[in-house]
Design a protein around this nucleic acid. Sequence first.
DNA 1: GTCTATATAGCGATAGAC
DNA 2: GTCTATCGCTATATAGAC
Lengths: 197, 197
Amino acid sequence: MPRPPLARERVMDAYESILIDEGGRAATLDAVARTAGVSKGGLLYHFASKDELAAGLVARLEALTDDDLLRMKADSEGPVAYYVRTSVMEDDALDRALIATTRLAQGGSVIAAAGLREVRRRWADAIRPHVRDEAALDLVMLLSDGLYFNNSLAFDPADPHGADGFVPTGEGLERLIRLVTQMTRAPKGSEPASSEA
Amino acid sequence: MPRPPLARERVMDAYESILIDEGGRAATLDAVARTAGVSKGGLLYHFASKDELAAGLVARLEALTDDDLLRMKADSEGPVAYYVRTSVMEDDALDRALIATTRLAQGGSVIAAAGLREVRRRWADAIRPHVRDEAALDLVMLLSDGLYFNNSLAFDPADPHGADGFVPTGEGLERLIRLVTQMTRAPKGSEPASSEA
DNA sequence: GTCTATATAGCGATAGAC
DNA sequence: GTCTATCGCTATATAGAC
């Protein structure tokens, strides 16, 4: 990798943070530059337009998704439990990129919406061999989408009522994971690692 | 009801349509007025500010939700099947208000986010007595959220690949509904219509 | 590679005629 | 109740100095 300049990464981080904390409308070039500690001109050297900023975010999301797919494969609990568990926002790099991209997509960014569909497709492909059928796959994917959706509606991170109890945590989450893994598990000795159409 | 002026409703419809088709950023006063066939001044007579426009949308969403809760209660298949089935966008009035409000919320509108949480709470309260436990309720609610979320990512209504196969339809949807209703059904003779904490 | 200064356009909202 | 005209602000993007 050509290892990107530090300022570029700082701009990207600032863009992400503003999208997450204040929504798409607040993510102006001015606000992003100020938060990143550079001038508007400095920002525009690295990202020549707002569209390039969005494209940079999608690229970051896709790279982080690749990393996550490797961790998912290696997880001892299995992909379904891993996927559902990691869908409750922990504020790690992947969660942040995902929420930020979601905000952009809802604002009308075509490139962000396409990026979201692409990473979702990758996750679905990785999970498909481990569930019993397409209905089970739909269930797992949609459940995860629902978790991210609810998290993405909580704007004020200091407000514990942001997600308003719709995102289970702790024991509630564990019970949900047990319910879903039981409901979707592929029959023993079917296709634990094979390919499927 | 004092029956609102026609122009007011036309403005609201236009606002909704633009939010759905082009996203929150495109929903400017100019664009809304043009689509509604009134001038900007005319629009601002009915809605004195952009915030009032957003508040009007939330009010419409809440009214449509009340209607839907009545239909849900009366549905012969039961609330869970009804709720999941009606979560795949059919482009009816409720779906449109819900997607439009979602767009606003993701853009950073606090009032829209609060409105969404409120209607979601009403649906959850109506469904709770009909499922086995809180984990089952979480599952149903999150699944529905996931369906709406995916639908809300398909911007171009002419593009059938917008939701990219993640939203099951036809037989796929029926299988999903069967899976979920079986998974969450309350034990026979528990509390089919009682109240619960 | 980063800055300041500025061009240009679009937005929300007001004022006042009809 | 609806219109036109316009103000003041903010946004994206460019030009050019350092």
